[in-house]
Amino acid sequence: MSEHQLVIEAGRGERHYWRDLWRFRELLYFLSWRDILVRYKQTVIGVAWSVIRPVLTMIVFTVIFGKLAKFPSGNAPYAILVYAAMLPWQFFANALSESSNSLITNSNMISKVYFPRLIVPCSAVIVSLIDFFISFVVLVVLMAWYRFLPSWQILLVPLFLFQALIAALGFSLWLSALNVKYRDFRYIVPFIVQFGLYVSPVGFSSNVVPEQWRLLYSLNPMVGVIDGFRWAILGGDAQIYWPGFLLSNGLMVLILGGGVWYFRKTERIFADII
């Protein structure tokens, strides 16, 4: 009996929160599963959509930056240089767009059932992660096509993926919580995503950024993630700019920490204002 004792008081949500989060872990699985099942229902080419978008963007960027502007790509084919960055970027962008609206689209559940609300944006991020894995298959195809053999560093991709996950989660928590109160973020997020594609080193290597600006450039946390992916996939040629890499990482941890804090702070009034 007493193991389930629950006290409800103003400002006392904390106590069981993390335990509840663990208890509801299956809900995380089911929500992600639902979104994946529903996602491509009544579409003709279905899951191919998650491949087509990054591939088309990759082609456009390769033509514009590689062939027309003739940016350097080291010894790797320009297409792989772009696609290696496209993978984490697409994951980050999808996670942001999906999760920022996730609380609103699930508002019905939020106003009728209790569960740790953190699950909702997290499941949106997981759905984007699935898309990432599908797109990753294309990278393998692309490497085979160019007969490009990656070095041992590719084994470190999961590490950088984890880094991308932290970044996506941090921003998602902020944006989803803010979107509940200020629906302006519905319009801000697409803008961030579009703008971010050009200020992040997706279409070009971050080596083209002048040395004195690199640290400033690394304030964009995706710079660290993308550089890491390139280093792991393209091999030794793409160098990691360590001060920037550490700065990016530090920022991401701060954003995630702040995101959890802000989400937890506003979560208790979600049902009242959604």
Partner: peptide, 30 residues
């Protein structure tokens, strides 16, 4: 526990399930 009280206190012994609406979270495509 969907929303917090402003004041006061509730003590509950046991697992609570609430049914404030039938079919919460049902997805019509599934």
């Amino acid at each position: 526990r969907i929303t917090e009280p402003t004041k006061g206190r509730i003590t509950i012994d046991g697992r609570v399930a609430s049914l404030l609406e039938v079919g919460t979270g049902f997805h019509s495509e599934l």
